[in-house]
Design a binder for these strands. Structure first.
Lengths: 132, 132
DNA sequence: CGGGATCCGAGAGGATACTG
DNA sequence: CAGTATCCTCTCGGATCCCG
């Protein structure tokens, strides 16, 4: 089974790693970030969400499914499957998920604001290495 | 070369992905988080930092080196190599790095606070699946 | 439409040995 | 001590096919 978007355990003896790190990796994961931020606007259906995210970066169905399941299990996302044909499933943030999304968005926005400084730092660094 | 703690480009045409996502992945990476938070206290030497982090989770020299280089290149970390025998290298946060560390710590602390709710959500979820 | 199951390549990440 | 270089393993993540 193992929904594992990341590792579960790391010690041979099965002792568990500080568990919040796993949650942190879930919400800051490549697709977790985009899912959480997208869902801040409104609920989305599966394919709809896939298209929205793919505007930023193409995501496979598999990874989107995996991400949604992991975040649902962590209590960040509510999954509402309507028993109709064709199937319709709506995803939305829980209260917990909204808090997470706000945190993540904060970090993302900070990063975006500081991109200029990061770029400068990189150019300096690469120039150093170039000469040696 | 490619210091790549993560991917660089993703489109065949070489068009660059929204670049801040890379920085985000650097600072929220498995080892990036622990490095940044550790360095908030004070500067550390390499092995010293390795030991400190390994209290939380064992890190190989390779991954610590890679993480430090990536974060140095992004301008988050200052590397001070003293020309002495035996070698002595001190790592500390830059102003930019301190801002990043505060953001990351905020997210980490939020996650830690909410772990109880996450655990409950997981138990509910797993119980659902168990029955069907 | 919303997934599951499977196969596969690429990169993350560890262990070890070596160097200045 | 602070790395570098090499090898090896394992997981992430994409592609494809299938099902209700």
């Amino acid at each position: 089974m193992a929904v594992s978007m990341t590792e579960q355990e790391w010690r041979p003896d099965g002792e568990t790693m500080c568990p919040y790190r796993l949650v942190l990796e879930h919400v800051t994961s490549r697709w977790g970030v985009l899912v959480l931020i997208s869902l801040m606007d409104r609920p989305y259906r599966f394919s709809e969400l896939r298209r929205a995210i793919s505007d930023v970066r193409p995501v496979s169905e598999k990874m989107l499914t995996q991400t949604l399941q992991t975040l649902e299990r962590d209590g960040m996302i509510h999954r509402d499957a309507k028993p109709v044909i064709p199937p319709r499933v709506d995803y939305s943030l829980t209260d917990l998920g909204r808090e997470a999304a706000e945190q993540v968005r904060g970090l993302a926005e900070w990063t975006a604001r500081r991109m200029g400084q990061v770029r400068e730092a990189r150019e300096r660094y690469d120039a150093e290495k170039g000469r040696g």
